[in-house]
Computed example of a mutant assay.
Amino acid sequence: MLDIRTGLKLRLMSLILAVFSVLLSNAAYADMVRLKDIGKFSGWRENALVGYGLVTGLANTGDSPNNKATRQSIANVLAQFDVAVQPDLVLSRNVAAVMITAKLPAVAHQGDTIDVTVTSIGDARSLVGGTLLTAPLKAPNGKVYALAQGALFVGGYKYDLNGNVAQKNHPTVGSVPAGGIVEVAVQARILRPDNTMVFTLSDADFTTSSRIAAAINKAFGETLAKAQDAEGVEIRVPEADREYLVDFVTRIEKLSIEPDTRARVVIDERTGTIVSGGDVRIAKVVVSHGDLKLSIITDNSVSQPILIRNTGAEIRTETVSNSRINVSERSETGYVSASNNTVADLIHALTRIKTNTRDIISILRAVKAAGALRADLIIQ
């Protein structure tokens, strides 16, 4: 009987130790982040494209005849099909002049499709139901990289009749999903002429940059990486890996480190939003907060003469204003004592004494001014 109990105790102890080791392991890797999630290689970026075109098929909601650019564009399109029409004779309101924007990925092959956004540049009332005619999309260097065409998807509407208007969102902005076709292939170049690459951090930090270089060198067993500054890590590509650059980059992106971040408290005064890390510390501080309300009320009354028939220059109706000031102060004052607590603890304590968000923002600014908030206070 004793052996059975001893065996059960040993099994229970081993189970507890196993659970404890798993928890420790999860805690150790809880803050580990892949390099792919905190930065990118220099040269890997999207390319902006822009174009001009016409949207047709609008139900009398297009540009008015006063828009000379639209009339000229319609005449130019018809001239390509051997239809000669003077721009002054074009009176259609079913066409709108638009600007087209799109983003070309860092790597794109001929025939790939991209999404395009269409915006009206004239006085069109709505682009609902319209179709974009074929239009070239150019890069800043003036070269055409894609063609855009297709039916517009507009997430809004606008209808008006006899002075009544019903509108939702912006009906003069639409999109054409997969409406752009890539005509010229592009390939981002991340390998520099000296056979090195630069990994750039999304948030510059010296400690994180140093940890990335150390992790790369440890993974490859040789000194390949060197932290240039707080944002960039220079990586030398071995000669054997230059032919298989994709595999080399994949191995680097899969590495995990624990990034070092600065403590920050972000406040949006317009919406009353406070965002803070859960471990942002506050030094020893005492907060005393009161609530004073002041209101001024004015009552307007009319003084009417008693003898209505006895009128003259000195007898008239007078308006009398009576004003009073009401001052109310909360009887109890909010008192919070913080000793090596976090911002989350302070906000929780202030919430318990029913402090509103605007007052909490003022208190955090005062705590920062007192030098007790050990974090960057960012006010938007």
Rank of each mutant, 00 (worst) to 15 (best):
residue 218 K to N: 10
residue 186 V to S: 00
residue 277 G to S: 06
residue 201 L to W: 01
residue 302 V to R: 03
residue 185 A to F: 08
residue 273 T to W: 11
residue 239 E to L: 08
residue 209 S to W: 00
residue 242 R to V: 07
residue 190 I to E: 05
residue 206 F to P: 11
residue 218 K to F: 07
residue 282 I to G: 04
residue 295 S to D: 13
residue 278 G to Q: 13
residue 296 I to S: 08
residue 305 P to N: 10
residue 174 G to T: 11
residue 259 P to C: 03
residue 174 G to E: 08
residue 266 V to E: 09
residue 245 L to C: 02
residue 304 Q to N: 14
residue 183 E to K: 02
residue 298 T to W: 00
residue 307 L to K: 09
residue 267 I to F: 01
residue 244 Y to C: 09
residue 294 L to Y: 13
residue 290 G to Y: 06
residue 291 D to K: 15
residue 260 D to E: 15
residue 240 A to W: 01
residue 176 V to D: 03
residue 226 K to G: 05
residue 216 I to P: 00
residue 241 D to Q: 14
residue 262 R to T: 14
residue 246 V to L: 13
residue 271 T to W: 08
residue 259 P to K: 08
residue 280 V to G: 07
residue 222 E to S: 13
residue 245 L to N: 03
residue 239 E to N: 11
residue 261 T to F: 05
residue 195 N to T: 09
residue 275 V to R: 10
residue 239 E to T: 12
residue 294 L to R: 12
residue 266 V to F: 04
residue 307 L to T: 13
residue 296 I to M: 09
residue 193 P to S: 08
residue 206 F to C: 10
residue 227 A to H: 02
residue 211 R to C: 01
residue 198 V to W: 07
residue 277 G to A: 04
residue 304 Q to W: 09
residue 283 A to S: 14
residue 184 V to F: 12
residue 256 S to N: 11
residue 267 I to V: 06
residue 198 V to Y: 14
residue 211 R to T: 04
residue 258 E to W: 08
residue 199 F to P: 00
residue 294 L to P: 05
residue 196 T to I: 07
residue 280 V to F: 00
residue 212 I to E: 01
residue 271 T to S: 14
residue 276 S to D: 09
residue 176 V to A: 03
residue 218 K to S: 09
residue 288 S to W: 10
residue 247 D to E: 12
residue 225 A to C: 00
residue 224 L to P: 01
residue 199 F to A: 06
residue 264 R to N: 09
residue 205 D to I: 01
residue 275 V to W: 07
residue 261 T to W: 00
residue 287 V to S: 05
residue 228 Q to I: 12
residue 290 G to E: 01
residue 277 G to N: 08
residue 223 T to L: 08
residue 187 Q to N: 10
residue 236 R to P: 04
residue 258 E to H: 14
residue 252 I to F: 05
residue 224 L to K: 05
residue 221 G to F: 11
residue 286 V to T: 13
residue 243 E to K: 13
residue 293 K to R: 12
residue 254 K to Q: 14
residue 301 S to F: 00
residue 233 V to T: 13
residue 216 I to N: 06
residue 208 T to C: 04
residue 219 A to S: 14
residue 175 S to F: 12
residue 283 A to G: 15
residue 205 D to P: 02
residue 188 A to D: 03
residue 233 V to L: 00
